[in-house]
Each structure stands twice: as structure tokens, then as C-alpha cells.
């Protein structure tokens, strides 16, 4: 498992280096992810080896956002001033974005004459 984590870190590092060399606006981990995906498509055997570790890491994905989330405490004194407007903007835009995105997927898929893929 530690080798697999090392592989993820290695691709992140590679992504950071490429982002710096080519002064890309993309973050290193996103570039690393695209490179690793390319490797897995070319060498599926690697994917078979690391898929257990990947699903283990991803099962804790939400934990990884907690430290940044606690940063909200820095804004507690401003909540009464800008909090309500920000809350309305965030709730409204998130609902609209999920709804619009999912409806777009559904209707563009129908336009192509393909059925929904529903489980079971």
C-alpha cells in the first residue's frame, strides 16, 4: 500500500513540475491525475494493482476537506454582515448548478437516442 501511495505522490510531484515548467494554471494534482489515467489506460495491469489502495483513499475523501473547512472560524465575526447574502448565493447557485447539469446530461443523452442507465 505504501508503494501505491508513493505512486500517487510521484504523479502529484510530476504534475507540479509540469505545471511550473509550462506555467500552466492547472494545479499539480489535476495534471498528475490525468497522467496517471493515461498510464492506466496504457498499462491496465498497474490499475489492477493500485485499485484497492485508491478506493481506500477515496473512501476518506470527505475527511481531507475538514482542516480547510475549519478555516470558517476566521470569518465568524463577519458572519452577521456578509453571511446571509453568501448563504443565499451558495445555496441558490449549488441547487441551480446540480439541477441544470443533471438535466442537461439527461436531455442531451436523449437527443442522441440513448436510454438512461439505471441500476438494477
Amino acid at each position: 500500500m505504501i508503494f501505491h501511495l508513493g505512486l500517487f505522490l510521484g504523479f502529484q510531484l510530476l504534475g507540479e513540475v509540469i505545471a511550473r515548467i509550462f506555467t500552466l494554471r492547472l494545479p499539480g494534482p489535476v495534471i498528475g491525475m490525468m497522467l496517471l489515467a493515461a498510464l492506466l489506460l496504457a498499462r491496465p495491469a498497474v490499475g489492477e494493482k493500485i485499485k484497492g489502495t485508491a478506493s481506500h483513499v477515496l473512501s476518506y475523501l470527505s475527511l481531507l476537506y475538514v482542516p480547510a473547512g475549519v478555516g470558517i472560524v476566521q470569518y465568524l465575526d463577519q458572519v452577521s454582515e456578509i453571511g446571509p447574502a453568501l448563504a443565499v448565493a451558495l445555496i441558490g447557485s449549488t441547487v441551480l448548478s446540480i439541477g441544470a447539469g443533471a438535466l442537461t446530461f439527461k436531455y442531451v443523452n436523449r437527443l442522441r437516442g440513448e436510454a438512461d442507465e439505471t441500476p438494477l
Binding site: 500517487f8 505522490l9 490525468m34 490499475g47 485508491a54 478506493s55 483513499v57
Partner: peptide, 17 residues
């Protein structure tokens, strides 16, 4: 813990594949 966001993002390559 925050640091692990990087490798976890890279790990998304696996479900994509």
C-alpha cells in the same frame, strides 16, 4: 490530513480508468 488532498486527487485516475 489536508496534505492528503493532493494524492487523493491523483487517485481519482483509478475510477476514471
Amino acid at each position: 490530513i489536508h496534505f492528503m488532498l493532493g494524492p487523493a486527487t491523483v487517485a481519482l485516475a483509478v475510477p476514471l480508468w
